[in-house]
Simulated assay, not measured.
Amino acid sequence: MSHSLSPEEDQLLVQLLADVKHNTEFFMGYPVSKDFNYEELMPFLQYPMNNLGDPFVPSTYAVGSRELEKEVVKFFADLFRAQSNDWWGYVTNGGSEGNLYGLYLARELHPKGMVYYSEATHYSVQKNLHLLNMENIIISTQANGEIDYDDLENTIRMNRQMPVIIMANIGTTMTEARDDIGRIKAILKKLAIKHYYIHADGALSGSYSAFVEPRPAFDFADGADSIAISGHKFLGSPMPCGVVVAKKSNRDRIARSVAYIGSMDTTISGSRNGHSPLFLWYTIKKLGTAGLKERAMRCLEVAEYAEKELQKIGIQAWRNPNAITVNFPEPPLQIRKKWQLAAESGWSHIICMPNVSKKQINELLAEILVSIELAELT
């Protein structure tokens, strides 16, 4: 028997909704798209959709979106130039799970491998390495946040008896720097490393890097063995989600059958969200490749505008080539709190997601100008 919520509980929900609406209006420091409308998909929320097990193997649990999930994975496998007969993947709970999966595959293929990743790598990677009990070495970064290729080469040379596992950043958290997988492959060839695995963490930048010119070296054609992206970032979703794409030949080496669910145990979590593939499929179908490219170009245009306008008022703003993240010295705390701007080592950034407008940039600039004038008066 269910009861009605009390007036206090009703008020709690009303207040939470008001807070969420208000806080969503004012954030530019995190890579989350909020320009989506999934009203057409609301009826699906009445059902317990669960894409149990491997999306490419039928399950005895039939309330899900497996067919749409397979289409989503295929879309990204094609976008990331995977070989037509050698790709596999699934919709994850987010980029961190995709990275965990890539490292898990790498460990199963190279149990004695050494993992190399830069100091600008997302904080979740160290947690993943701890969970998987993998040996690892942190590589220094260049000023822009990209991995230091000389340090990488020298460090691998000192440990060249071990298989090499690379965690490449396709857009670092703070500066959106992209590690060049082509250059990394060249280092491995130069050092005659025969056993290696390259995983690309493309949480934000990997979602749109295929649309920019010149195209960054980040995908399967460039030498990646697996790629993880987030779905709630560039594409947009009401809940965190992501996609991981790997070589099917590698995934086959770790697959095992589970009679209970009538499927294969190839994913990190057994029960998987059946709604998020639906949201991603909907966005991909509505926008298509052309629409996603236009979306990326619009973000880049706003980022260029923000960078130039900040520089005009004397702020040392900069960004990496073809990045939508604009870096600048951290503004006062009240501005950072209002616009939810992350800060690290004296720097903040705004991430020009599809929902960020020039009008919002102008509002932020006006507030920064006022703070500069006030500072000069005191």
Rank of each mutant, 00 (worst) to 15 (best):
L13P: 01
L16H: 06
L17G: 09
V32L: 15
Y38A: 07
P43W: 11
P48K: 11
M49I: 11
N51I: 02
L68D: 02
F75N: 06
F80K: 00
S84T: 13
W87K: 06
T92V: 07
N93Q: 15
G102M: 10
G113H: 03
Y117N: 03
Y123N: 13
S124L: 05
K127R: 15
L131D: 15
N133D: 14
I137S: 10
I139R: 02
S140G: 15
Q142H: 11
D150I: 13
N154Y: 08
T155C: 10
M158V: 14
V164R: 04
V164H: 02
I165A: 04
G171C: 10
M174S: 14
I181H: 02
K185T: 07
A192Q: 15
I193Y: 06
H199V: 05
G202D: 06
P216M: 05
G242M: 02
G242P: 00
A246P: 00
R251P: 00
D252M: 13
R253I: 15
M264W: 07
S271M: 14
N273R: 00
L280E: 04
L280K: 04
K293T: 08
A306S: 14
Q316C: 09
V326G: 00
R336K: 12
A343N: 08
N355Q: 15
S357G: 10
K359A: 13
A366L: 09
E367P: 03
E376C: 14
L377P: 06
